[in-house]
């Protein structure tokens, strides 16, 4: 009756972080939540709390001082989660590619799922990106629920049972040979 899998894709909550951008893409994200292009029809609320959100929207090329905060926010979000890089600066670094205080794009630090181009990207492309992110979130939820074993079969060495290497890493296949 209370099925969390079905309700998770009906109301994803958003966390937004500006990792050194020029504010153009942030104004367009704020305009997405305004009455003309309404993101709140999909059930989206802009919270400021990483423990309560599913989707991470990042803008801007990563500067050296913001990269620690970016990684900390990413690790504090619970699974399953989706990372969306908004704007050309977040995908590849745009005009800031050779400057001395800038890393080249976000995916040097955290794994990114959806790339949205444009300078500054328009609200229609951001809505396309969020819809695609919701499909990936549904796929990740299904994969998380698959059962997996925790222990291998115990091996025998001259009749003595050896249980030392019986723990499997998570996701590793059990090699039966």
């Amino acid at each position: 009756m209370f099925d969390l899998k079905k309700y998770r894709k009906k109301s994803p909550w958003i966390l937004h972080y500006n990792a050194g951008s020029c504010n153009g893409c942030d104004i367009e994200i704020l305009a997405c939540l305004s009455p003309k292009y309404d993101l709140e029809r999909f059930g989206v609320i802009n919270t400021g709390n990483p423990k309560q959100s599913d989707i991470f929207l990042v803008t801007g090329p990563v500067t050296f001082r913001t990269r620690e905060r970016l990684v900390e926010l990413y690790t504090q979000m619970p699974e399953p989660k989706v990372v969306i890089a908004v704007g050309s600066c977040a995908c590849t670094g745009c005009v800031f590619r050779d400057m001395y205080n800038v890393e080249v794009g976000i995916d040097r630090y955290i794994p990114v799922d959806v790339y949205v181009p444009g300078c500054a990207s328009s609200p229609e492309l951001i809505i396309d990106g969020v819809v695609k992110g919701l499909e990936i979130l549904e796929q990740k939820t299904k994969e998380m629920e698959k059962p997996f074993k925790l222990f291998k079969e115990a091996t025998t060495d001259d009749g003595i049972v050896n249980r030392r290497h019986s723990a499997l890493k998570v996701g590793e296949d059990d090699a039966k040979d």
Binding site: G20, G60, T63, R65, T66, D98, M99, N101
Partner: peptide, 15 residues
């Protein structure tokens, strides 16, 4: 302030 420093003035004279 200074989280957003990217180095624009130096790049204008070299790149």
């Amino acid at each position: 302030v200074g989280f957003v420093h990217r180095g624009v003035e130096k790049a204008c004279t070299t790149s």
